[in-house]
């Protein structure tokens, strides 16, 4: 019986993934746009590295500093967009009503969004990584096993923000859609993607310490410059991500409850 219930849930989650996979596979512009931005950004930072490397000690010792940073940053960005855009697609197509009168539960909807986000991230960032290897002979896998730790923390942070953005758009309508593109960039200055957070003013450093991504990029620099994996940074990021994820899910579920209360689910659309 328990297996039956779990099987039904899995089937519904996969149905949602299948729905979005159908959409992606038949739309080459969508596929292209997923890979385009990370690849172009990577190329830009790769040339910055080529330019600065002869005169910069850091880059001489760790030539992958910027390219690695931009690829990792994109895991966060693609992860967040993957969750938000999966939800927006349902709103654009006025399909939310059909989904919410089906047996699909809220947590299954969330799981489907997360799975789609993982797929979109692997496609988008994967393409950029392939180009980094082909064009600049830089392999993200040179980070070794710690790459898994960085990946997990960044994508979970992206998921938390993506769920929060989905909730806000459900609450305030597609007028709030811009949040999907802007939300992550609010974290960029305090994440220390391209510089140590020590260069920030004291009050911004305090904020940075509350953001999981700052620990990830500090960890990446420690790995590239000192060849050491700092476990404590990984654990701290994981703990803060746990809190982020709980907050993201809570906001999303609250927004679904609000939509049920105010009759938004059958009305939502372009």
């Amino acid at each position: 019986m328990a297996l039956g219930v779990a099987g039904s849930s899995l089937n519904r989650i996969l149905a949602l993934v299948e729905r979005h996979a159908f959409l992606l596979l038949k739309s080459w512009p969508r596929l292209l746009s997923m890979a385009y931005y990370p690849t172009v950004t990577m190329i830009m930072w790769a040339f910055v590295t080529v330019y600065l490397r002869p005169t910069n000690n850091f880059l001489s010792n760790a030539p992958g500093l910027f390219i690695g940073a931009v690829l990792l940053w994109d895991i966060l960005f693609r992860g967040q967009l993957g969750v938000s855009l999966t939800f927006f697609e349902e709103m654009y197509s006025r399909n939310l009503g059909n989904l919410f009168v089906s047996p699909l539960r809220a947590w299954e909807l969330i799981a489907g969004q997360l799975l789609m986000s993982l797929l979109r991230t692997l496609i988008g960032v994967g393409a950029a990584c392939a180009f980094a290897w082909l064009l600049f002979h830089y392999s993200i896998f040179s980070l070794g096993l710690p790459l898994i730790a960085f990946f997990v923390n960044l994508i979970v942070c992206g998921w938390a923000i993506g769920l929060a953005v989905s909730g806000m758009v459900l609450r305030w309508g597609l007028g709030a859609e811009e949040l999907a593109w802007a939300a992550v960039f609010l974290l960029a200055p305090v994440s220390g993607v391209y510089y140590p957070i020590g260069v920030l003013p004291g009050w911004l450093q305090l904020i940075a310490k509350c953001i999981p991504t700052s620990y990830v990029f500090e960890g990446m620099r420690a790995l590239l410059l000192d060849q050491s994996f700092r476990l404590e940074l990984f654990v701290q990021a994981l703990a803060i991500n746990g809190a982020f994820m709980i907050a993201g899910i809570a906001l999303y579920l609250w927004a679904i409850g609000y939509a049920r209360e105010h009759g938004l689910l059958l009305q939502m659309g372009e």
Binding site: S8, A15, L16, F22, L23, S27, S93, R94, N95, P103
Partner: peptide, 25 residues
């Protein structure tokens, strides 16, 4: 069913029905 709620427009009829068949088990 309602004329005011749509199915995903870019999916074919067959794809839409398969997705909902899975959702309904």
């Amino acid at each position: 069913t309602s004329p005011y709620v749509d199915l995903p427009k870019r999916l074919t009829v067959s794809e839409n029905l398969r997705v909902y068949a899975r959702l309904y088990g």
